[in-house]
Structure formats: structure tokens, C-alpha cells
């Protein structure tokens, strides 16, 4: 008689409908990252600029002499530009292993044997990175706007600069989507999260260097579309109604961002399969 006689029971409870599995993935992914000390430290750094600016807003609202510190529309643009550095680090820290680790552990065939599509798997992974990136861009920027209204005790600034609401939303969305999809695509190409991290950083610096080299040689900035970062900056200027900083048409900059996102999604759809066909 086997020892395991009673251990298996039929299951008579409820089952969630199809299409929910990605939420389970996202929740588990977020929890596992939050549990890491290193990550909390990174988040602390990422929120430091917010604290500094919030203090500035407070001081400017409280002391007349410090009114030069009062926020303008550009302040939010600058803030999001600065947060770009944290977008970079959070993307690498959170994103590099998202699919690469699953590939190393052969987990894709497990995921896809459950009632979920590969699109759902991609969505579940993307949502993890998306949430963390939103929490270092859109969230602090909006909180900054809110802080202003609270310390000023009025909505005057907000209503005078109403364009900031869609601008912050749109620009952080572009930042976050570009970073998360390209990182996820890179992560799906390898089994090593380290390699992915190096690739991402490498591409980031290489494209920036390429753009700067061409700028030095030609004396023009019309090659800004070669660098996703520069393209994003150009797009940001337009979104925030500022004079564009590079000599590349904003539509071309926007196209760069869109093409990169689309290409990343295409790579993901090719790479996230239950079977990898080797020929």
C-alpha cells in the first residue's frame, strides 16, 4: 500500500474565469521585487528629487523672498527629464530578468500550459515593469502638482497650466512604454539577466554616443532620431510646448519611439512560445 494514499482530493471549489492569470503574474512579480532591500534603496533614491522639489515648493509658497523657487510649467518637464536616470536603473533592475530568468528555468512551457495566452504572459510581465516605472515618473510628477496646490492653498497654478495634466501623462507614458517594451524584448532574447542588463545599457550608451559623434562631425542635431533618449527628449519638448532642442522633426522623433515599441512587441510575440523551434 502506498504511503501517499489519502493525499489527493478532488477540487470542488471555484475557479476564476479565463483571462485573469496575468493579474496573478503581475501581483507575484511585484511582490517578489518589493521584498528586495536593494530595490527599496533604489526607490528611496528615485524619490529623493521629489522630496527636494516638494521642499522648494513649500519654501516658495511660505516665504515671499523665496518666490524665485516657485514652480513653472518647465519645472515638471525638467523633473521628468531627471527621473529618466531612475527609469534607466529601475528598468535594468526590474526588467532584465523578467523573461530571461523564465527562459533559463524553462518556465515558459509551464506558464503556457495554463489557461493563458502568450499575449497574457507578455501583459503580465510588462505590467510589473510598467507599474514600477510609473511609480518613479508619472506618480511623483502628479504628486508634485498636488503638493503645489496644497501648499499654495489654491488651484490657480494648476488651472493656469492645465496642459500639464495631459503633458505629464503623455510624456511619462512614452518614457515608460519605450523603456518597458524594449527591455522586455531584450529579456526575451537571452537566458541570462546579466547579459540582458549589459545589452540594454550598451544600446543606451552606444546610440547616445553615435548621435553625439554625428553631431560633432556634421555640426547638426538632425540625427537625434538615432538615439531613443534624444528622440524622447525631442518629443518631450513638443509635449510640454517648449521649443524643440534638436533639428529633427518631432514627427520623426515620435516615429522612432513608436517603431521601437512596435518592434519590441513583435520580438516578444515571436519569442514567447511554448516551443522554441530549432532549425
Amino acid at each position: 500500500m502506498p504511503i501517499h494514499d489519502q493525499g489527493y482530493r478532488r477540487y470542488g471549489g471555484t475557479r476564476a474565469g479565463i483571462g485573469r492569470s496575468w493579474q496573478v503574474m503581475t501581483r507575484a512579480g511585484v511582490m517578489s521585487i518589493i521584498a528586495k532591500r536593494q530595490f527599496l534603496a533604489l526607490m528611496l533614491f528615485a524619490w529623493a528629487p521629489f522630496v527636494v522639489r516638494a521642499v522648494q515648493i513649500y519654501v516658495s509658497a511660505t516665504f515671499q523672498q523665496a518666490s524665485f523657487l516657485a514652480p513653472k510649467g518647465d519645472t515638471f518637464r525638467e523633473f521628468l527629464d531627471q527621473q529618466g536616470a531612475f527609469v534607466f536603473f529601475v528598468t535594468i533592475y526590474v526588467g532584465a530578468g523578467l523573461i530571461a530568468n523564465d527562459r533559463r528555468a524553462n518556465a515558459l512551457q509551464l506558464y503556457l500550459s495554463k489557461p493563458m495566452t502568450s499575449a497574457e504572459y507578455i501583459a503580465g510581465k510588462l505590467a510589473i515593469l510598467f507599474l514600477f516605472l510609473v511609480s518613479v515618473t508619472f506618480l511623483p510628477a502628479m504628486m508634485l502638482l498636488l503638493t503645489q496646490a496644497i501648499f499654495a492653498g489654491s488651484l490657480t497654478f494648476v488651472s493656469n497650466n492645465l496642459y500639464l495634466l495631459p503633458a505629464i501623462t503623455l510624456f511619462s507614458l512614452a518614457q515608460v512604454l519605450l523603456a518597458s517594451t524594449t527591455m522586455l524584448a531584450l529579456s526575451s532574447l537571452s537566458k541570462s539577466s546579466r547579459f540582458v542588463a549589459v545589452m540594454y545599457a550598451g544600446l543606451f550608451f552606444f546610440t547616445t554616443a553615435l548621435f553625439n559623434a554625428l553631431r560633432g562631425i556634421t555640426g547638426k542635431t538632425s540625427f537625434a532620431w538615432l538615439s531613443p533618449t534624444a528622440a524622447l527628449e525631442q518629443l518631450g519638448d513638443v509635449i510640454f510646448r517648449l521649443p524643440p532642442r534638436y533639428q529633427v522633426p518631432p514627427s520623426v522623433a515620435g516615429l522612432t519611439v513608436l517603431v521601437l515599441i512596435a518592434a519590441s512587441l513583435y520580438v516578444l510575440s515571436r519569442r514567447v512560445r511554448g516551443v522554441e523551434i530549432v532549425t
Binding site: I18, A105, N106, A107, Q109, S113, P115
Partner: peptide, 15 residues
């Protein structure tokens, strides 16, 4: 897939 269970041939787990 809601109603089947799959034990793959190769080593696999969720990391």
C-alpha cells in the same frame, strides 16, 4: 488548458 495538467519532459520551474 483549464482542464488539463502538463508535466513537461525537460526540467522546469518558476525561478
Amino acid at each position: 488548458r483549464e482542464r488539463i495538467g502538463y508535466m513537461p519532459e525537460s526540467d522546469s520551474h518558476i525561478p
